[in-house]
Simulated assay, not measured.
Amino acid sequence: MSDDVLVVEGVTKRFGAVTANAAISIRVRAGEVVGLLGHNGAGKTTLVSQIVGLLRPDAGEIRVAGVDAVAHPGTARRLVALQAQGQVPLDGLTPRTAVELAGRLRGLPRREARRAAERLAVELDITEWIDQRALPEGRGLSGGVRRLAGFAMTVAAPAPLVVLDEPTNDVDAARRRRLWDAVRRLRDRGAGVLLVTHNVLEAEKVVDDLVVLDRGQVVAAGSPARLASGLDDGLRLEVTLPPGGDDPTPDVPFAVRQRVRAGRRVLLVVPADEASPAVTWAASLRDTGVVDGYTLGPATLEDAYLALTESTGAAGDELTEVTSHA
């Protein structure tokens, strides 16, 4: 029996002349977390909408736990626990009530739903607000607590496939760590998790495999280590430019394998044997005020991601890319 809980093969979705998804293929197995990584507008949420039956693909196949999600969207939807990108409407409810209701709707007995709400409140550190009612216009509960309550509603009852669309939006750093721990526990209990995000650093910590989308297409797939290793033994030289300052990086006295600019940051991937001249160059520019500062270290997954999606960046940063030169 296959351990695939999600198989997406050749899915294409168009909106008029715009192709939101172009022949996308993804596989999620039981007991693994797969990250769907891409900048805003890369086509991530459109794909999720098709997986859960809110949109019908123009071409391709989607199977959830063996069920044809295109032919039987209702059946497939019952096998998916989804935390959508937007906030869950909680007005008038407490987190405890909302999580218990979500659990009951997904088949949990009343007592188990109550226990799930209490357990998740402790795991996510929101017990202080578990009985505080959400009020209209964002009153009563903060955006972060609402987001965590939405996550708890999603995972209160077991499901073969859990889809999390930007689950850490509005969540503070300490509770983000708790949420990621909860995602790992889902994986350890055998659920397949599709994590949709544009946060490279957080994705690297929790996922087993990554699928990188850019302008509706899969541009890379594999483990974080494999994607980062695509830069071989390169080092990461990050230069921070002063506001309004000129960019000196197009003309450097050492070899550069990859150059990507994101706002005031310029990332240069340089061969390891060029470390000494690179540091000398960067230090001299810092000392003369041409750059605000610099760092040098091993190339990271973020560098690989920026190299793969050089024309448009995460969170809408404008990026430019120049290939290697000496």
Rank of each mutant, 00 (worst) to 15 (best):
L135A: 14
A157R: 04
A228F: 09
S324L: 15
A314S: 08
A149S: 08
R265G: 06
T12G: 05
V33K: 00
A182I: 03
E204R: 05
Q132N: 12
E238Y: 09
H198Y: 14
E238S: 10
L108R: 04
A117C: 09
S324C: 13
E9G: 04
G138Q: 11
R226Q: 10
V18Y: 15
L319W: 12
A71Q: 15
T280M: 13
A159H: 04
D292H: 11
L37V: 04
A182M: 07
P158K: 05
R106C: 06
P57T: 09
G31T: 05
D208V: 07
D4R: 14
P243R: 15
V239E: 02
N21A: 13
T46D: 10
N199H: 14
Q85I: 08
T288Y: 14
A314E: 04
R187F: 02
A102D: 00
I51A: 03
P109G: 09
D251C: 12
L105Q: 14
P89E: 13
Q85T: 07
R286W: 10
V260C: 06
R96W: 05
V8C: 06
L82Q: 04
D273F: 12
L161A: 07
G234I: 02
A113V: 05
T19P: 01
V218R: 03
F151Y: 09
L186P: 00
Q217E: 15
A71W: 09
G16H: 10
Y294W: 12
G143M: 11
D209Q: 14
L79G: 04
A282P: 01
A156E: 00
G313P: 01
V52P: 00
D303F: 14
P89Y: 15
A191V: 01
L108C: 09
Q83H: 14
L164Q: 00
V183W: 03
E204L: 05
A22N: 14
P167T: 03
L37R: 02
Q258F: 10
G263R: 13
P224R: 05
N199W: 11
H72S: 15
A314N: 02
L93C: 02
G10L: 08
L141G: 00
A307P: 00
S223H: 08
R110Y: 12
L55T: 10
V279Y: 08
G66S: 12
E118H: 07
H198R: 14
L241A: 03
V70C: 05
T127W: 01
A225W: 15
W129D: 00
R176Y: 13
G16T: 09
A121Q: 04
G74H: 11
D303V: 06
G86D: 15
M153Y: 09
D303Q: 12
R257W: 12
L148E: 00
M1V: 13
D172H: 12
R139V: 02
R78P: 00
Q83C: 07
R176A: 07
L79I: 10
E202G: 02
E32H: 08
G192I: 01
L186T: 00
V11I: 10
G43H: 03
G74P: 03
L47W: 01
A283I: 11
L93N: 00
L227P: 00
R176M: 10
A76Y: 03
N21F: 03
K205H: 13
V322T: 13
V48D: 02
D91Q: 08
V270I: 12
L37Q: 03
L237C: 06
R78H: 10
G234S: 10
D233I: 10
G245D: 07
I126Y: 01
V252W: 04
L124S: 01
L164V: 02
A307E: 08
S49I: 07
L47N: 01
D68T: 11
